[in-house]
Write a protein that binds this DNA or RNA. Structure first.
Length: 516
RNA sequence: GGCGCCGUGGCCAAGUGGCUUAAGGCAGCGGAUUGCAAAUCCGCCAUCGGGGGUUCGAAUCCCCCCGGCGCCUCCA
């Protein structure tokens, strides 16, 4: 391969050349949600970036298996179920459905498997028994704990020493040998959901499900393990401890952690509604305790494309400040693309969304004109494409790659301007063909990020109603005024529409209108 | 207290030793285009929190300071 993929690895704190365990194949495990409450935008950072990463790896020719787990048994789920007087399974199901719907809303459609902890209890029990047999875990009055002191490598991911850990206090602490020990299995209290085990009825502790399920699906050593930065400790640290002590081999070759999201000044995570307290901005961290839950509203209000673009605009390891200003800017920036799509369709008669993207990476592809000679535009486009790919190769720098998208857009618009393709009379077949071929690359590169994959349906409402014929009428009247040089009337129509948020653009091939 | 991150133009944001004479976006200004607009194109708009050091060369490495933030307890 003429290119080299580099991935930042949290364990070594360096960018590493990417080499899969099995040539040609990649296994990715991303820590999904514990489904005790509705999803919020912060939960989507990982899924969106990994969705783009999977697309990219597939584009580069890898056969990728991407797993996102659902943790559907946990103290918080139990607590929630009690509060609401429903079963834990119901709580889990509701919130899982909410999570899935939001993933769809953001165009995350590359996940291959979404295993649930409760469906892997046997595997989990087996895993725990193995750890006990190997002397890394101990049974204590119905609970099973991982014995941190037995793991000489404990703390390597988060750079902590085992004995400096406080561990959770409370009643469990009494049963532990050391405060840093963590539960693999928790004995069931009355009224709690429980499964049989060699240690009595109980349920898995947090962490163990990921070790068990990743092994089951991806193997003892797999390529990429992802999650939010907040999971480095204790979750991933404990996963490594469990898996590596159990298997005696590395669990993961590349640990990838996305940055966390923060609410910007005045930002509200849930979309509508007042903030709970005037002081809410003091705690700018986005946490589930802040009464999030309006992600569906957020998607409905701003559109999945915009949110996805907003997330991809910032490097995945950085903190993303989420707020209305950033969202508004993303919306504006994105409109340049949709305007191009409309322009492209007017000129070629083909919808951008119907353009078939190139699905496989081909660096340095020399595209030529129909007569076989290299075309200036196509050469320029190929350069942009290579620059884009180089940025993606460098730890999936989507923000930098997006800058090439804007450059590409400029090249395309410039070509149209230079050849006056807005004028139907100037539309020679060769020029149109070149434009179409160049646009394939824009399609290819936006597709890779999962942007503009399908036509937005937000205009559908307007088209179903009176809006379209009404606007057609006004535009016709205005066009007639302009032909009569009655600009006062024409401008009045445009002005009044503008006050309604409707923009008119007079182009060589007619007047087009745009809703707010 | 321990571990770690960040501070780039008015705002957002790439870049982390020379190939960047600091990408891209938003906003702004000037021009082309337009009946006028809108859109589009062209041009303009930063020496990288402060100080010191290493180096032939630093936004990029080291030290100190100032200012933000995260984790160490549940969190994507």
């Amino acid at each position: 391969m003429p290119y080299t993929l580099r991935v930042y690895d949290t364990l070594t704190k360096t960018k590493q050349v990417f080499r899969p365990v099995t040539p040609g194949r990649v296994g990715i495990y991303l820590c999904g949600p514990t489904v005790y409450d509705k999803a919020h935008i912060g939960h989507m950072v990982g899924p969106v970036i990994f969705d783009a990463i999977k697309r990219y790896l597939v584009y580069c020719g890898y056969q990728v298996t991407w797993v996102v787990n659902i943790t559907d048994v946990d103290d918080k789920l139990i607590q929630k179920a009690k509060q609401r007087g429903i079963s834990m399974a119901q709580v889990a199901q509701e919130n899982t459905e909410d999570y899935l719907a939001n993933l769809r809303g953001l165009g995350v459609d590359q996940i291959d498997q979404m295993p649930k902890a409760t469906e892997h209890i046997e595997e989990i029990v087996r895993f725990i028994q193995d750890l006990i047999d190997r002397g890394f875990a101990y049974h204590s009055d119905g609970d099973v704990f991982f014995d941190v002191a037995k793991d000489v490598n404990y703390g390597k991911l988060s750079n902590r020493s085992a004995d400096s850990q406080q561990g959770e206090g409370g009643e469990a602490a009494v049963k532990k040998r050391s405060p840093g020990d963590f539960a693999l299995w928790k004995a069931a209290k009355p009224d709690e959901p429980a499964w049989d085990s060699p240690w009595g009825p109980g349920r898995p502790g947090w962490h163990i499900e990921c070790s068990a399920m990743s092994r089951r699906i991806l193997g003892k050593t797999f390529d990429i393990h992802g999650g939010g930065l907040d999971l480095v400790f204790p979750h991933h640290e404990n996963e490594i401890a469990q898996s590596e002590c159990c298997h005696g081999q590395p669990m993961v070759n590349y640990w990838m952690h996305n940055g966390l999201m923060r609410a910007g000044a005045g930002g509200k995570m849930g979309g509508r509604g007042e903030r709970e307290a005037p002081q809410a901005t003091i705690d700018t961290k986005i946490s589930r305790s802040k009464g999030a839950g309006g992600l569906a509203d957020l998607i409905a209000e701003h559109g999945g494309h915009t949110l996805r673009f907003f997330l991809l605009r910032t490097h995945y390891r950085s903190t993303i400040v989420f707020g209305p200003e950033g969202l508004a800017e993303a919306t504006t920036a994105l409109e340049a693309f949709t305007r191009y799509f409309e322009r492209y369709e007017r000129i070629t008669g083909q919808s951008f969304y119907d353009v078939t993207p190139v699905q496989r990476r081909q660096d340095g592809d020399q595209r030529t004109d129909s007569d076989g000679s290299p075309h200036e535009l196509l050469a320029e486009v190929a350069r942009r494409r290579d620059a884009y790919l180089a940025k993606m190769d460098d730890d999936f720098n989507t923000g930098a790659a997006i800058s090439e998208l804007f450059e590409l857009l400029r090249s395309l618009n410039k070509f149209i301007d230079q050849h006056d393709l807005d004028d139907p009379a100037a539309r020679e077949q060769d020029l149109l063909r070149t434009l179409q071929r160049a646009t394939v690359t824009l399609r290819e590169l936006t597709w890779l990020l999962g942007l503009f994959c399908s036509a937005p349906d937000d205009q559908a409402a307007a088209q179903d109603s009176f809006v379209e014929p009404l606007l057609a009428l006004l535009v016709d009247l205005r066009t007639q005024s302009r032909q009569r040089k009655d600009f006062a009337t024409a401008d009045q129509i445009r002005q009044r529409l503008s006050e309604l948020g409707i923009t008119l653009e007079d182009r060589k091939d007619g007047t087009v209108w745009r809703l707010p």
